[in-house]
Simulated assay, not measured.
Amino acid sequence: MFNMREKGILEYDQIVDLSSRSHHDAILINPGLPALYQLNTLRKYIDKTEKKVRQWTYGRRDRNKQNKVILLVGETGDGKTMMVNTMINYLLGVKFEDEEFYQITEEGEDVDQSQSQTSEITVYEVFVEENPTSLTIIDTPGYGDTEGYEKDREISEYLIRLFSDEEGIHYIDAVCFVMKSSQNRLSGKEHYIFHSVLSLFGKDIENNIVFLLTQSDGGPPTDALNAINKAEIPCRRDEDNQPVHFLFNNRQKEKRNKRYKRVLKSVWEMGDKSMDEFFTLMDEKNRKSVEMTLDVLKERRRLEACVSNLRETEKSELLHEAYISIMNLSKITLKADSAFTLQHLDFLIPRLKKEGKDEWIQNLEDLRKRGEEQKSKGALRYVMDYTGQKWNQFLHFK
């Protein structure tokens, strides 16, 4: 690989010439140091006519390769898109000295980062001939500043399509929350995002949940870990009982200014080390089927349909079905007392009282009490504000 320190500063035309010599199937989109490339991908929609679950494949598909499936989730602006590309560059074997960076995503830098850049789920498949492992990344839409419950419902429906389709995803190796390492507290919205995602999965996924912490300086991410622990987010834990986490800086595309090159190399190598540890963790045969998670998603859909129909009618069978659905969710979902479930209780409990269902009411009241705990208040307040429901009437908080 060409050594800039030995050859000195190149003219623009020379940079273009050298940067065009990538041995990967990619198009040069920004010459420089590092040169930025767009990977060529074969694209299609898994859900055919609906066109909400798209699949982009790089390289020649090889079913004989060991495949790892990763689902990424996070708030818009926390670095999820860069994390996708960081994983891809790791699989491609790109090093800092190569003076190049590849991206599989296509979000432009001029897009307002406070808003979601896509309303679709994108499944990235990456096959590298020299690498015995292939990678599948499920990139969920980020939550923008003005989005909440409707986005939650959309993602749930898209995942049902992805997990149900014959050509879709049927197992997961890791569920990765992307958040900033400097995060010292979770806002109501962030609490809601965690609640939302956790309530989508079955209980068997807990040990597959890890954290990818961005904008790290390489030091202990004390603030982020405290925030995660305070929110009591179920996840995989290490020997010190801390949430399993990996550190990244997300500055791989920055211009290699001579003054800061040593720092940029250091954070690149930190990311490489984190990727080594992350992929080693996934070698522990901790893969989970999405079968239980698919049951959760379908039960959520059933509950929403029941409650929606009850707002026209007062049919007992619908009321009973809604209650049974909540009880089923409490047995199989990773987050039984999520904002998704609790928001329906204030509607259902008075109607069950009319039917004298005392035992059922007690079960729902117990579930509501769990929602009154401090760890859940932020998420519930957020969803109530979003849906326009009156907070005090919902959980009677003081």
Rank of each mutant, 00 (worst) to 15 (best):
C306H: 10
I326K: 01
R368A: 15
V69W: 01
D272V: 04
N67K: 14
K95Q: 14
A336D: 13
K265M: 14
E106I: 00
T214A: 08
D346G: 08
Q14A: 11
Q66H: 11
D295E: 15
F246E: 02
M282T: 01
L281Q: 10
S134E: 03
E120M: 06
S316A: 12
E150S: 14
R311T: 09
N207D: 15
Y12G: 02
T76V: 10
F2K: 02
K68Y: 15
A322F: 04
R21A: 05
E150Y: 09
E254M: 06
G74A: 11
N229L: 14
N286K: 12
G59W: 04
I9P: 10
D358G: 04
I138F: 02
L225M: 11
T146Y: 12
Y45I: 00
P220W: 05
D112G: 03
M270K: 02
I160W: 05
S274Y: 09
T105G: 13
E314M: 06
E372S: 12
D112V: 00
D165P: 05
R236W: 11
G168R: 02
T118D: 07
T41N: 05
R63D: 14
Y149N: 10
S164H: 11
K390R: 11
S156Q: 11
R370K: 12
H170F: 06
W391N: 12
N250G: 15
E75L: 10
E373S: 08
V197K: 09
L198V: 00
F177V: 02
Q113W: 06
N241V: 00
D276T: 00
Q393C: 01
G142S: 04
K255A: 08
E6K: 14
I209K: 01
H24I: 00
E277M: 07
E150D: 15
P243D: 08
H191R: 09
N64Y: 05
K255L: 01
T122V: 13
D358M: 07
H320V: 00
Y149F: 15
R381G: 09
T341N: 15
C176L: 12
N257W: 10
G74M: 05
G144Q: 03
L28K: 03
K353V: 02
E206Y: 01
V123H: 04
L18N: 11
Q362N: 08
K51R: 12
R161Q: 13
N3P: 01
P141F: 04
N85C: 01
R153F: 14
Y171R: 03
